[in-house]
Structures are given as C-alpha cells and as structure tokens.
Amino acid sequence: MHPCSRRAFMAGLLAAAGAATSPSAVRSAAAANGPRRRAPLRLGVTPVILEDRVGFLNRWGAWLGEHLRTDVELVQRTRYREIVDLLLRGRLDLAWICGYPYVQHRDRLSLIAVPRWRGQPLYRSEIIVPVDSAAAGLSDLRDGLFAWSDPDSNSGWLYPRFKLRSSGQDPDRFFRRTIFTWGHARSVQAVAEGLTDGAAVDSYVRETLLLHEPRLAAAVRVVERSPLFGFPPIVGGPSLAADRLQRVREVLLGQDADAEGRALLADLNLDGFAEASSALYGDIAAMAERIDGRQPA
C-alpha cells in the first residue's frame, strides 16, 4: 500500500470525524527540564503546509517551546476558516494561515513572520491538469470538473476566480461541477487520480510534494502560473500580547541560525522566516476587494 494513499484516506476520515468530535490537538511534550512556565502558546496550523505530519509538528512544537521557554500547543484543522475563527475568538494565540484570510482580517491580526522559500517570501497559484490532458490553460477547462482547495485560500480559490472574472467569466458557471478538497495536496491527488479535470494549487505545496510523493506530483502538469504572491504568513491573534509576539518573532527569525531549527526548516522545504509588512499582501487584498467587495478591507 502506498503510504500517501493511506494518509489521504485517514485524512478523509479525520476531516469527517473532526467536524463532529472535539478538536484534535497536537500537544508538544513539555520540556523535561526547567520550571513550569506560563500558559501554553497555542499555534494553529492549516494545510498551507503539508498536513498529517504529526511527527514533524511535535518536533517543531518542542523546539519552539524550548526556545520560547513555554509550552507550545499545536492545533491542526483542515479548514482555514476554523483556524481563523479560533484565532479571532482568542482560542489560538497565533496561526499559520493563508494570505487571503489575513487580508480579510488584517485589522485584527498582526504579522509575525513570513517563511522564505527559495530565498523569497513568495509563492504562486498554479492551475494543474493531469499529465495526459490536452488542456493548455484555465480556459480549456470550461465545463469540466474542477477542484478548489478551500474557500479561504488565495491560490486555491481567490486567484483562479479572479482570473476567470478578469476574462469575463462567471467563476460559478464556468465549470460543470466543482468540489472542495480542503487541501492543496488533496487537490493534486484529485487531479492525479482523475477525479477532476483540473485544480488550482499552491506552488510551494506542489513542489514540496514532488519531494515527498514524486509519483503523485509527477502525474499532474502545470498549465498556468499566477504572478508571485506573499507566502502564507504566521500571524498573531488578538489574544497574543505584544511582548510574546515579539519573542515568537525573534525565535522564528533566528530559527535558521540554529542547527536543529535548520533541520526542521529543511524538513519543511523552507529556508527560514523573514520579517514582513502587510504590503506584501497588497495584491491579494486587491483581488479580494475585486471578488468579494463587500468584505471589509
């Protein structure tokens, strides 16, 4: 059995179960030495990075906890909206979310750091089709089956809709049928396995998937690339005190200077974390304004 397939299957079950049952939290082990510290730092994780990597998340949480001198509790949800809700309601202190929900709520969220991938805090949205497909672009997918990743995703929802709207199409009628896969990796899987004719995915996730699941990622072909957008950032919620935010930022910015931190970054296929300003997400904000103008800026 292919490890990927089992994970995807379990992910499906987890996603279904998660809707009804209590949140599944990945709690990092408390550091073995040192006195008991303050209330744990709650960090939300979405499928903007690879999912289902419990072992990695445990290690990263432990590393963060050690450097922050506090317990770090990692909370994972399949849907962006759940993480954003938890963050806005103060149930999470900080979260790794997409740029799109960030610009939607930027008045209540504060940027902590943004990952650097291939030297830059940037990524793209990509339109993928099966390798054997004849489609040469998004326009060839008219009346086809299409997979969105998440209605709060920039690369897997906002950008392709913006693109269609820009070319005078109604994104809700352009495709015959669309589905949500609730994750970029699953969108790749949906296209690779022929469930849909195309999908819009995060270029970082797709390329990282090439390292972990080369067969799956090799079954799809990129037919369109968006301009570069700001990479999904790590943001602090209203409950995160400024000193704590600053402390977290320092630790994250220094992660690539630490050997263990570098190994963790390498595992994520990232170079490190950088400081960012909200200007990085100006393009996304402009698209969001265009697509759902009623949303507060």
Binding site: M1, G12, A16, F180, W182, R186, E193, L195
Partner: peptide
C-alpha cells in the same frame, strides 16, 4: 453513515476518499 453525511453536505471529497480507501484506484 459517512456517505449519507457526504451526500447531504455535498462533500464529494469525503465520499471519494472513503471509497478510494487505502488501495486507491
């Protein structure tokens, strides 16, 4: 049971990942 839920909520991916099972295609 899960399939009924997926149908009601139009969650194609849930139904697909269930049917796909561990063996895939």
């Amino acid at each position: 049971h899960l399939l009924v839920g997926a149908l009601r909520q139009d969650d194609v991916w849930l139904a697909y990942s269930l049917l796909r099972g561990p063996d895939g295609a």
